[in-house]
């Protein structure tokens, strides 16, 4: 499995091109409006950063992680129409209204049974939709009294960086919402220029580090990890690294030796950084990766001690 496959599936042949790519800028009602391709919005989340948070899951990721818990957010629907017939609720239809094929969802009928995802040849979903910043602001405003902030997760948030910058800027400049913190949950593949564009309006990033070893990282994600390591260093340097997440996948990256080397590398970046050790769970992963064992709490406890022994002070275990 290589990165090229991912690029072909995610960048060149997907339906995003029909709409001008994952990020869409255009004049609507006379103003510059940015929209993003969003898989779903969760009003309340207790697990996506500090406090209760509204989470926006964007569609499309450039990694192909074996342990991905929501793999239907990796690829973007190419409107092949293969899910229209199997839909038990008859909620899907294939239209050519805009000159090109497009799968349209009747959301009043859809019961989110996920049959469309099961039959999708690229494991995507027709349910992702383009959402404008203004619509998201309204949604955020309606739950603002209940949350500490918002998190853009995915998919990969930084693949739609223009959208995220506009969204965060809007939040920071809207009275009543300006107290909310803005965070991204990211695979860390974005380049320094992207982080520097986000930094003025982003309070922090939660970065997944799947593996320190480049070969292992390639096997686990289909991508090189040099940009990830650089992102962690850069975000720490500019004070925007909220936490580094280490997902422990048994038999892959969870040996004490591997974790120790990772800890030493993190220690050199910032000994006080928040490091979240997460045990792999099978929930949601694709069938061909479902043979992977789940992480044992006892082993996680050993790895936690390893991280602390190296000198990291901000270790939390999930």
């Amino acid at each position: 499995m290589t990165g090229e496959r991912g690029l072909i599936n995610r960048g060149l042949t997907n339906g995003g091109l029909v709409n001008g790519g994952p990020v869409n800028r255009g004049l609507v009602n006379g103003g510059l409006v940015n929209s993003g391709l969003v898989n779903r919005v969760l009003d309340f989340s207790l697990v996506d950063g500090p406090g209760n948070r509204l989470v926006i899951f964007v569609q499309g990721c450039n990694f192909d992680c074996i342990a991905c818990h929501n793999p239907y957010t990796i690829d973007v629907c190419d409107s092949c129409g293969g899910c229209v017939e199997p839909c038990p609720d008859e909620a899907l239809s294939l239209t050519f209204d805009r000159g090109t094929p497009e799968v349209v969802v009747d959301r009043n009928v859809c019961t989110e049974c996920d049959v469309c995802i099961e039959v999708c040849p690229i494991n995507s979903t027709p349910l992702a939709r383009r959402m404008e910043v203004s619509a998201l602001l309204q949604r955020i405003g309606s739950v603002a009294p209940f949350i500490s902030g918002i998190t853009v997760s995915g998919g990969e948030a930084t693949r739609q960086a223009d959208f995220v910058v506009d969204l965060f800027s809007a939040v920071k400049s809207t009275p009543g919402l300006d107290r909310l913190t803005t965070m991204v949950d990211t695979n860390g593949s974005a380049d320094r220029a992207t982080w520097d564009r986000l930094a003025p309006v982003m309070d922090g990033a939660m970065v997944d580090l799947k593996a320190l070893d480049p070969e292992l990282h390639l096997r686990m994600t289909g991508q090189d990890n040099a940009p990830v390591l650089e992102s962690i260093r850069h975000l720490a340097a500019i004070g925007k690294l909220y936490e580094v997440r280490l997902l422990m996948v048994p038999g892959h990256n969870d040996s004490a030796e591997t974790v120790k080397r990772t800890a030493e590398w993190l220690l050199a970046v910032d000994p006080d950084m928040r490091v979240k050790l997460i045990g792999f769970r099978r929930h949601g992963v694709r069938p061909h990766h479902a043979h992977i064992a789940e992480a044992e709490p006892e082993h996680l406890a050993i790895l936690e001690r390893t991280l602390r022994a190296v000198g990291l002070s901000g270790v939390v275990v999930v």
């Binding site: 309340f44 207790l46 697990v47 500090p50 406090g51 209760n52 948070r53 739950v143 009294p145 209940f146 949350i147 500490s148 939390v316 999930v318």
Partner: peptide
């Protein structure tokens, strides 16, 4: 999961009263 994020319940309580 709230156990690991008590601040989230603080947010929700404040929201509920608002």
């Amino acid at each position: 999961t709230a156990r690991r994020n008590p601040r989230a319940m603080v947010d929700i309580i404040r929201g509920a009263f608002a």
